[in-house]
């Protein structure tokens, strides 16, 4: 429950940032009601200012990242919800193609981590395919340990860096 609300908060913040970016002079506009959007085709949790079916919609309202345990590549229980949402969203927007990036933390050799990243990206892809997404829409790429998002040497950062990220590469609304 706490996780859900923090996700919502993050989504609202992102929406506010987006609006802010578009309207520099209206800092107080955040509290104003968003312009009415046409009702979405399905009952998806849509945040104001985010175009349904867009890459932003996917990232903010669905979630693009799952995490892995050290040296592991199995999908964690608490990430299955995110991937099921990804699959549902991809089913709703059938023209979207995406690449799953597999990443590792720094505790492995370069050559091992490239292989481990490939395993993680493939695990995400297989989960999505099992949920009905056509395999041809999904690419995988491993970045090994070459693209950390957190740079401290400690479990806090390492756990963030061991990740699979679904990146939309085409077919999304914009």
């Amino acid at each position: 429950m706490t996780k859900f609300s923090s996700t919502l908060k993050f989504a609202a913040l992102s929406a506010a940032l987006l609006l802010g970016a578009c309207t520099h002079k209206q800092e107080a506009v955040n509290t104003a009601p968003p312009p009415a959007a046409p009702p979405p085709p399905a009952a998806a949790p849509v945040q104001a200012g985010i175009l349904p079916g867009s890459a932003q919609d996917f990232k903010v309202n669905v979630g693009d990242t799952v995490h892995f345990a050290l040296n592991q590549y199995n999908i964690e229980e608490n990430d299955k919800g995110t991937l099921s949402k990804q699959a549902a969203w991809l089913t709703r927007y059938p023209s979207v193609r995406l690449t799953v990036e597999g990443h590792a933390d720094e505790r492995g050799t370069r050559e091992y981590n490239l292989a481990l990243g490939a395993r993680r990206a493939n695990a995400v892809k297989e989960f999505l395919v099992a949920q009905g997404v056509a395999a041809g829409r999904l690419e995988t790429v491993s970045y090994g340990k070459e693209r950390p998002i957190c740079t401290e040497s400690g479990e806090d950062c390492w756990s963030q860096n061991r990740r699979g990220v679904s990146v939309i590469t085409g077919g999304a609304a914009s």
Binding site: Y73, E111, L114, A115, A118, R119, A121, N122, A123, E126, T140, V141, S142
Partner: peptide, 24 residues
Amino acid sequence: MTFSPRFSPDGNRVALVLENGGNS
């Protein structure tokens, strides 16, 4: 993905790693 190349001592071959379906 192909990665981790290394030439043979005679230079005629390259050992490498090929990933397929997540397995390297």
